[in-house]
Simulated scan of single mutants.
Amino acid sequence: MDNLQISEEQFTNMQESFNAFNKVFGILIGVKKNKLNLIATILLIIFAMLLYIVFVFPLAILKGYIILNTICVVYGFTPITTLIMTAITEPGVILKRQISDNQQPESSLTQSNDDTIQIENTTQQDDVPKIYRERFCSTCNIQRPPKASHCRECNHCVDGFDHHCYWVGTCIGIRNWRYFVYFLIAAFSAPLLAFLVGIVLFINSFSLATTLWFEMFDTLGISVLIFYIFYIICGFWQHKTILNAFTLIIMIFGPLLFTFSIFQNRTQYQQYYYYENPYFTLFVSLVMLLISCMLLPMTSVNCSNALQFKTTKQIHSEEEFRREKGQFRFGDNKIEFNLMKKNLIQFITYHIPKSRYQNL
C-alpha cells in the first residue's frame, strides 16, 4: 500500500471492493455467489468416499489388502484438501481503481518460452494477442496488466485469469491456478484408484458372484431372459437412448437388489456380511469409474494447459489471434517433450505472488 499514492476516498472504495469479494474472511476467500456450489462439490466428494468406506473398505481389510486400502482411503482426502486450498486462496484480484494509467503493473505469469509469443515491454500492441496487451477495463476503471481479464461473475479483474469455476465457487487466477490443477488431478485419480481396488476385490469374489448370478436366473427364470431379449430387440437394435438408459439402470440395480435379498433370506448366505456381496463392490466400482470418466476431459485439458504453462484464456486468445491473421492450423499447440518438461517444472515451482491487498 505504501507505493501507491491514493486518496482516502479511493482507499475506501478499494477496501469495500475487496470486502465484497471476500464474503467470508479466512474461510471462503474469493467465494462470492457460489458458496452453495462449493459446499455441494464437497458433499459429492464426501458421498463418494462414504460409498467406498461403507461397501469396499471393510471387504478390502477382510481380504488382506490393508496397505492398498489404506493408501486409497488416505488419498481420498486429497480432492477435498486441494479443493479447499483453491477456494480459500484469493485468485489475484486487481481491485477497482488500483492501477493508475501510468503505472506499470507486475505479473508473475509473464515469463515466456523460446517458441511462445514475446509479450514483455512490446511497443507493437497489435502484433500480440489481446490477452497479452495492457487494456483498460471500464468496469473496474483500471489499466489491467497482460494476462489479466475481467470476471463477469465476480465483477473484478483477475491477474492470470483462467476462468470462473462454478464447482469451486471462485475465479481461477494467478494465485490459485496451481491448486486448481492439483484438485482436478486428485479428483480424477482418487475415484480411479478406488475403482481399481473394487475391481480387484470383485475378481477375488468372482466365484461367489457367479453363484449369485445363477441363483438369480434360477429364481427369476424366464422373466430375466425375456427382459434381455426385449432390450436387444427394442433398445439396442432400434437405438432408443432413453430405453437403453432405463434398461441399463435395471441391469445394474436388479442384481444388486436381488443378491441383497438372497443374503437376507437364504440360510446358506446369512453368514456373509453385507459388504461381502460382490455386486455391491461392483456397483461402487462403476460409480467411481463414472466419476473419473466425467472428470477426464476437464482434467486432461487443464493438464495440457499446465504443460504449456498457459491458461485457458491465453490459449483461446492466441487461437483467435492466429485466426485473425490467417495463421491458425490445427495442432499448432503441440510442443516438444523437453519443452513440456520445462513448462511442467515451471508450473510446479513458479512463485505464487502475495495478495496485493491482503492487509486491507
Rank of each mutant, 00 (worst) to 15 (best):
E120H: 10
Q125Y: 04
S100L: 13
Q125K: 08
E106G: 04
D114T: 12
T123I: 11
K130V: 07
D114S: 14
I131F: 04
S138L: 09
N102F: 13
P129M: 01
T122N: 06
L95P: 00
K96G: 07
S100Y: 07
F136E: 05
R133G: 00
T110K: 08
R135C: 03
V128L: 11
L109H: 00
T122P: 01
E106N: 10
P105D: 06
F136I: 07
S138C: 09
N113H: 11
R133C: 00
K96N: 11
D126W: 04
R97V: 03
N102D: 15
S108I: 05
D126N: 11
R97S: 08
V128C: 06
P129N: 02
S100P: 02
E120V: 15
I119Q: 06
Q111N: 15
E134L: 05
I131Q: 00
R135M: 06
I131R: 01
E120Q: 14
N102E: 13
D101P: 01
R133T: 00
Q103R: 06
Q124H: 13
C140L: 05
R97Q: 10
S138P: 04
E120N: 15
Q118G: 10
P105W: 05
Y132H: 02
I99S: 00
Q103K: 08
T116G: 13
Q111P: 04
D114M: 08
E134C: 06
T123H: 08
I99Q: 01
Q103H: 09
Y132V: 00
K130L: 13
T116P: 02
N113Y: 11
P105E: 05
I99A: 02
S112K: 10
E106I: 15
S112L: 08
Q124F: 09
Q118E: 12
E120I: 14
P105S: 08
F136K: 07
I119S: 04
T122R: 05
T123W: 05
Q118R: 13
Q98T: 03
L109D: 02
C137S: 14
P129L: 02
N102L: 12
I99W: 00
E134K: 08
R133H: 02
V128S: 06
D127H: 10
D115R: 10
R97G: 03
C140R: 01
N102V: 07
R97Y: 15
Q98W: 05
D115W: 08
Q118S: 14
S112F: 09
F136P: 01
K96R: 14
Q98K: 03
S107N: 12
T116M: 09
T122Q: 05
I131C: 03
Q111D: 13
S107G: 15
R97M: 07
I99N: 01
P129E: 02
Q111W: 15
K96A: 13
T139I: 13
E106V: 15
D114C: 04
Q104F: 08
S107Y: 07
R135F: 01
Y132Q: 00
T123E: 12
K130F: 06
N113K: 09
I131K: 01
Q111V: 14
Q98S: 09
T116H: 05
E106S: 12
T116W: 07
S138R: 10
Q103F: 08
C137I: 04
P105C: 09
